[in-house]
Amino acid sequence: MQPERPDQPDRPEGDDEDQAWRAIVENYGERAELDEPPAPEPPRQPDAPFGGRFGDLRSFGHEDEDEPFIAEEEGFEPPEPPPVPRTTPDRLAAWIGVFGSPAVLLTSLIFSISLPTYVGYLLIAGFVGGFLYLVFQMPRGPRDPWDDGAQV
């Protein structure tokens, strides 16, 4: 009689299914003989900064004497930038109201400067009035019906 094992149910000794599975597992294909893999070589630590992950940064910005920068040969000069756009005085006053009023109120709050009541109301009115003026001056429709906003 077979000794009882808790992991297997009671089966007779000559169980054909059990023997078939053992035979399949034991004879499953030929076992491959693997050679010992070569020991991996330690990675070479380059002398470049950051381990060379970003190339050799020491030569960044240096030009070879034999190969000067192409733009110097051609004499390229970028065009003059366009002048800074000037705004009208009414819009300038609105922008000052939108950004200047909160700045004055915040500064007086931080430094504990007591403002007269009417000055506080004027600063708040300047902020609200400037904001409303800028909103109402915005264009009502698109510049071009086919314009998607991208400009080259």
Rank of each mutant, 00 (worst) to 15 (best):
Met1Leu: 08
Met1Asn: 08
Gln2Leu: 08
Gln2Ala: 07
Gln2Met: 02
Pro3Val: 00
Pro3Arg: 00
Pro3Asp: 02
Pro6Lys: 15
Asp7Phe: 13
Gln8Ser: 07
Pro9Phe: 03
Arg11Cys: 03
Arg11Val: 04
Pro12Asp: 03
Glu13Arg: 15
Asp16Gly: 09
Trp21His: 07
Arg22Cys: 02
Arg22Ala: 03
Ile24Thr: 01
Val25Thr: 09
Glu26Asn: 14
Asn27Gly: 13
Asn27Gln: 03
Asn27Leu: 12
Tyr28Thr: 09
Tyr28His: 09
Glu30Phe: 06
Glu30Lys: 13
Glu30Ile: 07
Arg31Met: 01
Glu33His: 11
Asp35Gln: 11
Asp35Tyr: 04
Asp35Ile: 04
Glu36Trp: 03
Pro37Tyr: 01
Pro38Ile: 14
Pro38Thr: 14
Pro38Phe: 00
Pro40Val: 15
Glu41Pro: 04
Pro43Trp: 05
Arg44Pro: 00
Arg44His: 06
Gln45Leu: 00
Pro46Asp: 03
Pro46Tyr: 12
Ala48Tyr: 03
Pro49Gly: 13
Pro49Gln: 10
Gly51Cys: 05
Gly51Met: 02
Arg53Ile: 00
Arg53Tyr: 03
Arg53Ala: 05
Phe54Tyr: 06
Phe54Thr: 03
Phe54Met: 12
Gly55Met: 13
Asp56Cys: 07
Asp64His: 10
Asp66Leu: 08
Glu67Thr: 15
Glu67Ser: 15
Pro68Leu: 08
Pro68Asn: 02
Phe69Lys: 13
Phe69Asp: 12
Ile70Cys: 05
Ile70Gln: 02
Ala71Pro: 00
Glu72Gln: 11
Glu73Cys: 12
Glu74Phe: 14
Glu77Trp: 05
Pro78Glu: 02
Pro78Phe: 07
Pro79Leu: 08
Glu80Gln: 06
Pro83Val: 08
Val84Asp: 04
Val84Leu: 08
Thr87Ala: 05
Thr87Met: 03
Thr88His: 05
Thr88Leu: 08
Pro89Gln: 02
Asp90Ile: 14
Arg91Lys: 06
Arg91Met: 06
Arg91Tyr: 00
Ala94Pro: 00
Trp95Asn: 11
Trp95Phe: 14
Ile96Glu: 05
Phe99Thr: 01
Ser101Asn: 15
Pro102Asn: 06
Ala103Leu: 12
Ala103Cys: 04
Val104Ser: 09
Leu106Asp: 11
Leu106Glu: 07
Ser108Gln: 14
Leu109Gly: 06
Leu109Glu: 10
Leu109Ser: 09
Ile110Thr: 11
Ile110Trp: 10
Phe111Cys: 08
Ser114Gln: 14
Thr117His: 00
Thr117Ile: 06
Tyr118Met: 09
Val119Phe: 08
Gly120Leu: 13
Gly120Lys: 15
Gly120Gln: 11
Tyr121Lys: 11
Leu122Thr: 09
Leu123Ser: 13
Leu123Asp: 05
Ile124Glu: 07
Ile124Thr: 14
Ala125Gly: 06
Gly126Val: 00
Phe127Gln: 06
Val128Glu: 05
Val128Phe: 04
Val128Arg: 05
Gly130Ala: 15
Gly130Ser: 00
Gly130Lys: 13
Phe131His: 12
Leu134Trp: 04
Gln137Leu: 02
Pro139Leu: 01
Pro139Met: 03
Gly141Phe: 07
Gly141Arg: 13
Pro142Arg: 09
Pro142Phe: 02
Arg143Tyr: 07
Pro145Trp: 06
Pro145Asp: 10
Pro145Tyr: 09
Trp146Ala: 11
Val152Ala: 11
Val152Asp: 14
